[in-house]
Design a protein around this nucleic acid. Structure first.
Length: 163
DNA sequence: CGAATTTGACCGGCGC
DNA sequence: GCGCCGGTCAAATTCG
C-alpha cells in the first residue's frame, strides 16, 4: 500500500502508454484503477516496458474553478526533488490509436471547451465529468506527429461510484 | 422541454 | 511592463 512512496515515477506527471499495449479495453481498466486507487494504478503502468515518461514541466492545473477555493499552487522553481504536496494533482495521459477522439470509458463526460494549441495543428478538447462534485477532468488531443493517435489525459479521481 | 453541445471571449500565469 | 499561451466560463444553439 505505502510502497508507492518509493515509486520513482511519482515525480512524473504524465504517463504515455504504447498504443499496442493499451487498447480501448485497457483504457477502461485504467479508469477502474484510477477510481479504486491511484497508487495501485501507477505501478501497473510502470511495469510496462514500452512506457514512455513525459515530464510536463511548467505548470499544473491550478485553476479548478475560479469561483471555488482551489489548491495552493505553490510555484516552485526547484521541483527537481520530488512531490510538492500530498494533494498534488497528477495527470495520466495515454496514447491510443483511434479514429474517434471520444472514447467511451463508461463515464459521462461533458465537453466544456475546445482550444487550438500552438504545438499542434489540431484542437484540444476539454471534457469534464457530468457528475457534480467529481473533480475529474479529461483532455483529448490528437498526436501532433501521428494524427491517427489520440492522446487522452485523465486528471483527478472520481468521487462517485463508477458507471 | 431539457440537457448537452458549440463557439467566443476572458482570465491568469509565465516569460522576456 | 507587455506579450504569449493555455485554460476556463458563459451564452447561444442544437439535439434527443
Amino acid at each position: 500500500m505505502s510502497d508507492n512512496e518509493n515509486f520513482p515515477l511519482e515525480s512524473l506527471d504524465l504517463y504515455f502508454g504504447e498504443p499496442s499495449k493499451f487498447e480501448l479495453p485497457d483504457l477502461l481498466k485504467m479508469d477502474e484503477w484510477l477510481r479504486d486507487d491511484l497508487a495501485s494504478f501507477a505501478p501497473v503502468i510502470a511495469s510496462s516496458e514500452d512506457l514512455l515518461s513525459w515530464g510536463y514541466g511548467g505548470h499544473d492545473g491550478r485553476d479548478f474553478g475560479n469561483a471555488g477555493g482551489c489548491l495552493e499552487g505553490s510555484s516552485t522553481s526547484n521541483e527537481s526533488r520530488n512531490k510538492e504536496k500530498t494533494e498534488a494533482k497528477k495527470k495520466y495521459a495515454f496514447k491510443t490509436m483511434s479514429e474517434v477522439e471520444i472514447l467511451d470509458d463508461g463515464f459521462k463526460w461533458r465537453k466544456y471547451g475546445k482550444k487550438k494549441v500552438k504545438d499542434s495543428p489540431n484542437p484540444r478538447n476539454y471534457y469534464r465529468c457530468s457528475v457534480e462534485g467529481c473533480p475529474v477532468k479529461k483532455t483529448v488531443e490528437r498526436d501532433r506527429d501521428d494524427p491517427r493517435y489520440v492522446i487522452t489525459t485523465y486528471e483527478g479521481i472520481h468521487n462517485h461510484t463508477g458507471p
